[in-house]
Design a protein around this nucleic acid. Sequence first.
DNA 1: CGCTAATCTAGAACAAGTTTCACACTTGAT
DNA 2: ATCAAGTGTGAAACTTGTTCTAGATTAGCG
Lengths: 240, 240
Amino acid sequence: MDQVIRATAGGRGAAGVGEKVAKVDKPGAGSGRRPVSPSLTARQEARRRRILRASTRLAARGGFEAVQMREVAESSEVALGTLYRYFPSKVHLLVAVMQDQLERLHATLRKQPPDGDTAAERVAQTLVRAFRALQREPRLAEAMVRALTFADRSVAPEVEQVSRQTTAIILEATGGPADPAPGRLAAVRVIEHTWHATLVAWLSGRASLTQVTADIETACRLIELTDTTTGTAPAGTRGA
Amino acid sequence: MDQVIRATAGGRGAAGVGEKVAKVDKPGAGSGRRPVSPSLTARQEARRRRILRASTRLAARGGFEAVQMREVAESSEVALGTLYRYFPSKVHLLVAVMQDQLERLHATLRKQPPDGDTAAERVAQTLVRAFRALQREPRLAEAMVRALTFADRSVAPEVEQVSRQTTAIILEATGGPADPAPGRLAAVRVIEHTWHATLVAWLSGRASLTQVTADIETACRLIELTDTTTGTAPAGTRGA
DNA sequence: CGCTAATCTAGAACAAGTTTCACACTTGAT
DNA sequence: ATCAAGTGTGAAACTTGTTCTAGATTAGCG
C-alpha cells in the first residue's frame, strides 16, 4: 500500500542530531539494526500510525525540539528500540510526518483547484493557500521543515520523495500537461526552492508573511516565461 | 572593526542541537551565562580567531558532525565554558564560520568582476563561481549550510547578516545601483533562495552540478524582468 | 500443538551538546 | 597597590539522540 518502512539502503541508521559515527566514516556494511520487513502486518501498520500520530501531536505542541524520541516511544506505546526500528532517526521520523502531511494537503488542495487566469497565478494561489494551511500549525511546520533541511544523505530518498510530491502539487496547479517542457520543469524547481526557503525564513522569524507571498509570486512569474510544449531547451544545461 | 561577539539579545544561550528548555518556554529573563563583552581585548580577539580557525579546520575535515564542541575547545586551547561564552551554540559557531568565509569569498569575487553582457549573466556567472569555490571544501560547505538551515530563531540575527552579505554579492554582480527597484530586490531574493536550496540539494546528493547551474541560471532570468529604476511595484505585496 | 525466526520490550549504556561549579587570573578604577 | 567585577579554566553533571543486551511475545509453519 502506501510507503512502508524504508530499508535505509546503506544500513546504519545514525543520522539525527547527535550522530555517533566516529572519525572514520564506515558507510557500507549493513551491520547493526535491521529495519522491519517491507510488508507490514496489521499490528505493525497500527504501530506505525501510532508513532506518526504521536510525533505529529508532539511537534504541533512544541516544534522540533519537543519531539523527543523517548516521549514519542512512550506516547505511542512502543519501546524505544522499536521506534528506532521503524524510523532510524529523529529526522527520518519527522520527514515521514512531512510525507504524511503533504499527502493530506495534496488531497485537500485537489478538492479546491485554483481559479487564476494564468498558470503563474494558479501556482501562486495554490502555494499561498498551502502556506496558510501550514500557518495553522506553525510548530508542526517548523519541526517538519527543520528536519527536512537538516537531513543528510542518509535521508536523501525520503527527502527526494517529499520533493517529488511538492513538484506534483505545483505542476498540477499549472494546469499544464503532466509531462511539461524542461524549461517549465526548471521554473517549477526554482519555485519549489523559493517556497522552501521562504518557509524557512518565515519560520525563523526572518521574513514577514507579506514578503513570503511577494517572493512566491515573483518566482511564479518564471512560469510565464516557459512554453508548455516540449522540446525547447531554455535556461540551461551548459555546465561549468 | 569586523563584527565582534554578539550580544545574543534575549539572554539565554541555549539553542543548538539538544536544546534544554523544558516544555514551558521561558524566553525573557536574561538569567544564565553572559556573553563576552562587546568590545574585545587583543587576547580575546586572538581567542576568537583561534576558535574560528579550529572550527573551520574540523569542518573541512569531516563536516558538520566532525565539529565537536569539546574538540573545538581543545583544538583552539580554550576551555569548553569559554567556547560557549564566545559562541552560545554549535550552530552559532558554524554560522560565524560562514560569515567569515563569506567575507573572504566576497573579497575574492570583487577582484574578478564577472564579464557577462547582461545582468542576469553576470549574476549567474558570479554564483557559479562561488559555487565552485565551495566545491573545493565540500565538507566545510556542508557544515556551514547545515548550520544555517538548522538555525532557529535564536540565531536569526546572525543568519540575517549572512543573508545580507549574500544579497550584497548578488547585487554587486548585477552592476546595477546599490539602491535597486523593489522588483529587482524581489528577484534577488528569489535568486538567493534558489542558490541556497540548490546548495542544500547538491550537498545532500540530491542534485547534480548540472542541475544546480541550470536552476541558478533559470532563477537569474528573473533579473531581466525587472527594470533598474525605482518606483515600479511589481510582483507582489497584494496580501492574501 | 510445538518449534524457530523475527519482532518487541525494558532498561542500561554511550555519545555529544549544553550547563554548572568552584576556583584562578586579568583588568580597570580608585 | 588593591579591590571588585569580569573572564577563563577544568572537571563534572545533565539532557537527549542513538545503540546494545537479554529476555518476552508473536507469527508463520510443519
